[in-house]
Design a protein around this nucleic acid. Structure first.
Length: 357
DNA sequence: AATGCCTGCAACCGCGATTGA
DNA sequence: TTCAATCGCGGTTGCAGGCAT
């Protein structure tokens, strides 16, 4: 037996809202509020709409101080940083961008920002196979497991963004990087990634990474998520700017030196700087299209799958990707957060993200 | 001009979480 | 404690407009 519908679909209007409906809803809520019951609201107003539809319309369009379009570079940075760190938790991301809705950000990410970042690299066979367009007309797509798709999208996209940012931070070896800059993965996930990165660096001498934790990173009690070093904001700004404005080949050693001097990324060894960035670029492209990448993605997917399966039955044993169970169980929803209490969860959550397990 | 494809976005759907009787 | 009602979220769909052929 299926779930009972929230309303009688035959008696409610669907599709785009008319200006009259907008005016009715807006007027009523501005005068009386929602009354704490969206389901009852349309009946009070005399709207032939589902309560959920009214809620969505209000939150995403009619609510005061809503901004549409015109995302700034700073907003892009925040969205990118948070997506890499916590995934598609649009409500949390939206809570960091006043006036933006989760729906807007989700659409913006899916239609523009993701393409800006991931699209810079030519689509390899593997990525095009594992990240099908939501508008794909390929009949073969329909034969694949939709859940597999959902998992692959998130896992692979975030992995690709990692690699892309890592490749810009250090063109010579993505193994030679500060692990604190990586979003929080399960140890086995990290191990798999590192093992697979070894695959592309097998003929190189690996350079030990110097972990430098900034005072900012050590601090506690941050008020804003941008204070946290998922990808440190100033580092991300520079990296992001490079992503948007130049090819990887054009990124100079000077650039990496300037970043490392102000953030947690150590300046490259003189020897390492002699390596040709183009070589890395080639290896990276090769890696993305390799069977190893496919295997890695499927392994990461398995962890995501197990995480989700576990969390549904045993919170204490679940793997964690970008979220603590404590946070999950307590977090209010984004739309209930006012602007003065953005990101209401305590800083432990972000220590989790930042410092790993 | 007609047609088909692509893109962006508003809206919908289903599910898990929360609430309160 | 149970369970129905409701909320809120993330994924997906459908449509309108732009663009290419």
């Amino acid at each position: 037996m299926g779930r009972a519908p929230c309303c009688d679909k035959d008696s409610v209007k669907r599709g785009p809202w008319s200006p009259e409906e907008d005016a009715k809803l807006k007027d009523y809520i501005e005068k009386h509020g929602t009354g704490g019951n969206w389901i009852a609201l349309p009946h009070k107003i005399g709207l032939q709409r589902c309560g959920k539809s009214c809620r969505l319309r209000w939150l995403n369009y009619l609510r005061p101080n809503i901004r549409h379009g015109g995302f700034s570079e700073e907003e892009d940075n925040i969205i990118c940083s948070l997506y890499i760190s916590i995934g598609s938790r649009w409500s949390i991301i939206a809570a960091q961008l006043p006036g933006r809705t989760d729906n807007d950000i989700k659409n913006y990410w899916n239609t523009k920002l993701k393409k800006k970042l991931l699209g810079r690299h030519k689509q390899s066979s593997i990525s095009s196979r594992l990240i099908p367009s939501t508008h794909s007309k390929d009949p073969n797509d329909a034969q694949e497991d939709p859940q597999q798709h959902a998992l692959s999208n998130s896992a692979l996209e975030r992995l690709q963004l990692h690699l892309q940012l890592q490749s810009l931070q250090n063109p010579t070896s993505c193994y030679n990087n500060n692990p604190t800059l990586w979003p929080r993965l399960h140890p086995l996930q990290e191990k798999m990634i590192q093992q697979n990165l070894l695959f592309i660096n097998q003929n190189e001498t690996l350079i030990p990474s110097t972990v430098v934790v900034s005072s900012q990173q050590q601090a506690v009690g941050h008020e804003n998520v941008s204070d946290y070093s998922f990808y440190k904001p100033q580092q991300l700004d520079a990296t992001y700017t490079k992503l948007m404005t130049s090819s990887s080949e054009a990124v100079s050693d000077e650039y990496f030196g300037s970043i490392s001097s102000s953030t947690v990324v150590p300046k490259l060894d003189a020897g390492a700087a002699d390596l040709n960035p183009k070589t890395f670029q080639d290896e990276y492209e090769s890696f993305l299209s390799s069977d190893k990448m496919a295997e890695l993605v499927s392994q990461v997917d398995e962890f995501d799958y197990f995480k989700e399966a576990d969390s549904s039955k045993d919170q204490s044993s679940s793997f964690i990707w970008g979220s603590s169970n404590e946070f999950d169980s307590k977090s209010p929803t984004s739309t209930s957060w006012n602007t003065s209490s953005r990101l209401p969860c305590d800083h432990q959550m972000f220590q989790d993200f930042t410092f790993g397990l």
